[in-house]
Design a protein around this nucleic acid. Sequence first.
RNA 1: AGGCCCAUGGUGUAAUGGUAGCACAGAGGUUUUUGGUACCUUUAGUUGGGGUUCGAGUCCCUGUGGGCCUGCCA
Length: 584
Amino acid sequence: MSETDVHPSHFIRDIVLADQESGLHSGRVQTRFPPEPNGYLHIGHSKSICLNFGLAEEFGGQCNLRFDDTNPEKEETEYVEAIKADVRWLGFQWAKECYASDYFQQLYDWAEKLISDGKAFVCDLNAEETRAYRGTLTEPGRPSPFRERSVKENLDLFRHMRAGEFPDGTRTLRAKIDMASPNLNLRDPVLYRIKRAHHHRTGDAWPIYPSYDFTHGQSDSLEKVTHSICTLEFETHRPLYEWFIAQLDIFPSHQYEFARLNLNYTVMSKRKLLQLVKQGVVSSWDDPRMPTISGARRRGTPPLAFRRFCETIGVTKFNGMTDIALFEHTIRNTLNPIAPRRMAVLDPLKVTLTNYPEGKVEHITAINNPEDAAAGERQIPFGHTLYIDREDFLEDAPKKFFRLKPGGEVRLRNAYVMKCDEVVKDAAGNVIELKCTVDFATLGANPEGRKVKGVIHWVSAAHAVQAEVRLYDRLFTVEKPDGDKEHDFMEFINPDSLRTVTACLEPELALDAQKVRDQISANAQLPLREEGSGVDSAMRPMYSSDLRVQFERVGYFCLDEDSTAEKLVFNRTVALKDSWAKHK
RNA sequence: AGGCCCAUGGUGUAAUGGUAGCACAGAGGUUUUUGGUACCUUUAGUUGGGGUUCGAGUCCCUGUGGGCCUGCCA
């Protein structure tokens, strides 16, 4: 059974199931994924995406994509587009594309209703004073001196706020709840603030903007959301969420909270990710080292790996730390059955076959994927001069090293058994070439009377295609980069998170790349980096990263979008497991 | 500290009040023209203390530890 088919039970799934069985809302299930368009989506968001969209899918319901855009100062259209592309790339399709800003008028009307009902008031305290009146964790707050204004005066003032007649920050609309509540969110929370900022959708139509608390629950309610699933930090906001719905007597959406995903060796906060981009530590939001969805996509991570990973980590209220190794395992596991095998030499060392005729070329048949017979075969040219990986030769090899050594034999993957006769060095003593001989009786056959354990990959020098290969590693050197009070997370940047090499590839990879280019240009309206408009998720655009291969014995790689007809660029998605590395 | 929430191997999780299981990581092995994959074996766990019960990871009390809340952010 594949990992995707498994839907382990968790408390939220249990709740949805029980609600559906009891006939709540006639069994209808409506969820939503509510990002704020103030940054790119990261792997933590993918947990929420898989949960919300996955539950809707599983229970025959729908999931909306809703942009929580109530703070114009931080939100941009660029982020909206990136978020949509990421959700689609993960393979999900939203029922409706919504914006909290579409509800601004309704929200405003509801605010007037609360005022009319004596449940909200205009407060003239500034931010600092409001804080002082709020009290502390252990002391109750004091009522605002403006709390007892008349309904008429409140209504009048609020309308003037809306008309843009007061300076920013001079007044707020607040709910009248309980200044003594041990839950600080209930101490007369702010519903509206005056903020003359240009909004990415409503432009300058509004000088006042509703707060998250006054927006989120009502937005859910308007969309008839049955299960509003959010992260743990909103737990203490739930009473407020319910209060507004009760006062307004609107559709009773309910909020459920789960623990957000924490991954080691990375940072997840949008602020810190922005900092990495702004300070040039990474090239962009979609730098393959970023934990963003776009970064993972560019790195070659298949979307299915995200879905499987999110099923694997489960959903609980426990705030833990997931090992990145689990994600990497999921990526390998997902790629193994589908990634065609190719040979690529990352650190070329010249090998001359002294007993192989110069100018002769054989085309050797190789299996594309031992895990998938349907993947077929390909031809690989073999000739007098080869490249092998420098790593696969050792002059003074330890006992357990069963790759190439002087006088030793090794199997050339898919080809002959080869013996190292002579080591050629330069004046400085560096090995620059190996002179070897092949055993012609060993093509597709085991050698007579001896066992050759080592197998190494190779590329024919005459046919090798050069490419830039980017070897990515984790961005941070410590498990919790932002968990140190003394040191800033920027101090833990891994200096070797990117290593770029010029590799020699078997020519088939140039053909592979050409096919991808052809497919992408055949769909010219779907550019590489941007989402085409009007494309549903089933027809998502093709990305260069959709060419995912395994460089045998090395790792999984994908074609990078920086590739051109003249120059190929590959990214390492994840290395293969290497049990030899532990011996060293 | 006031309130709310949480606690199962190193990590992430599962277990109508009834044999503590799975995955990752670690160790060992089999197979292998990838030191990959697959398969097998193995190390390791219910936060402490009380109670209820024939029986408690599960229910109750209490301690300890952790998270969140004092934005006109979300």
